[in-house]
Write a protein that binds this DNA or RNA. Sequence first.
DNA 1: CGACCAATTTGATTCATATCAAAGGCATAC
DNA 2: GTATGCCTTTGATATGAATCAAATTGGTCG
Lengths: 251, 251
Amino acid sequence: MAQAIRLHQVKSPLKASCQQCSLSNLCLPLAVEDNDLERLEDIVQQGRIFNRGEHIFDQSTPFRSCFAVKSGSVKTSIITEGGEEQVTGFFMPGELIGLDSMSGEHYACTAKALERTSVCEFPVEKLEDLTGKIPGLQHHMYHLMSQEIQNSHQLTMLLSKNTAEERIAALLLSLSSRFQRRRMSGTNFSLPMPRNDIANFLGLAVETVSRVFTRFQNQGIIKARGREVELLDVEALQMVTRDFSRQGCQQ
Amino acid sequence: MAQAIRLHQVKSPLKASCQQCSLSNLCLPLAVEDNDLERLEDIVQQGRIFNRGEHIFDQSTPFRSCFAVKSGSVKTSIITEGGEEQVTGFFMPGELIGLDSMSGEHYACTAKALERTSVCEFPVEKLEDLTGKIPGLQHHMYHLMSQEIQNSHQLTMLLSKNTAEERIAALLLSLSSRFQRRRMSGTNFSLPMPRNDIANFLGLAVETVSRVFTRFQNQGIIKARGREVELLDVEALQMVTRDFSRQGCQQ
DNA sequence: CGACCAATTTGATTCATATCAAAGGCATAC
DNA sequence: GTATGCCTTTGATATGAATCAAATTGGTCG
């Protein structure tokens, strides 16, 4: 068995081993029984690397695959004909990109690596075959897509009802919980994206984002130096978000 | 064959006949071969009626089914603990409700009939079974959910970048194209929802919506009396929306 | 038919955030 | 080491839409 894997690796260095991946409890393998895992591994191409700023795909790329983030982080955004950008999401390890593109010939958004990032590629055609055969995996796909809709509705709500402070508090808490899921500190982390992208995502001007950060800092709620952030008073942040609670629980 | 159908109808008056439904080219049957259609009809419960204001489900209802609008129209919204409402969508005949709820035990939103409305019910458990067996149907479900994500992203964009006028123009055009899909007039229709819901959906105050309507009217772009709307200058509306183009092309 | 309640419209004022402008900080490259 | 450019911060001003207030319309029901 181990030999078989090695053999494949010789043939194709990208051959996946989801079993050994530390993200197997977050990513697609989560929904697959051990004895079916091999079938998933058969269709994955693992470990493509992108440097900061590189596109994983853009809106002119024919839609072929969904991508799971393995390490690093990714920003997705819609670029209009006029060149305006709307950031639609940030994706961290274990999260799946491309679900919004499963209709249409081309990707519905542009995905850009925010830092040096590695991704696993799932060709949709094969993935659809597989989900047809593994009910649990099909169910999980529905689950993930449904989550994605909910997340987007939460963002809609944030944009339509909440102040700048509330939006930013919500984003910080979302990031925090996603770091925690990966057994990393939920209070001490480094923002993968520039202020600019935060602003765009939250429908604010960069200046406003900056001002809110300093205001939070003056209130002793957070400590921020550049992208390094420390959440000093999570409760206070939760108070700020009021009833906008759990955006971004992607699983 | 006709007898068999009649027989079923005697047993259960809700037994579906998707074949005869005028929406079969918009709704789920669209993705199903003729010889599989019966299997879809087997799981559908057709024709439940709701009066204006009645809930099809709410956020405390255990999630069991998706619903296709057969006639009338439906508003979905998220109600927060604080009682605030965020309208997340309007659904017209042929469109499918509940895709955002396919994760979690309960519905992720509340669905309310905007007028006397009839819906077809698809129990998800059976639907998932069926999509596992009919690849085209599974594909279509992915397609619809993906569309829903895209629609929500378009709304996000609208809220974060566009003025009140642009948002309302976009909504009018979206409704227009959805009426046209049903072979109804795209320039002369009756809004199924009150100004209040439009405002909430678009992240505006009612007063603003009202003002924009009268402004458009003074400019000769539309004619509106109550919910009755006539689009006099579609081109002008399209100009107003700028590069926000095709929101709500749900198919 | 008239009365009541809800939905819509209109007007005056306020406010949060955008925009404009510019200075400081940080990292990369030469 | 210093220069270049980008990212971030800070300040002053402008503005679109919210809010507050009230009149008007419209539909429903006794």
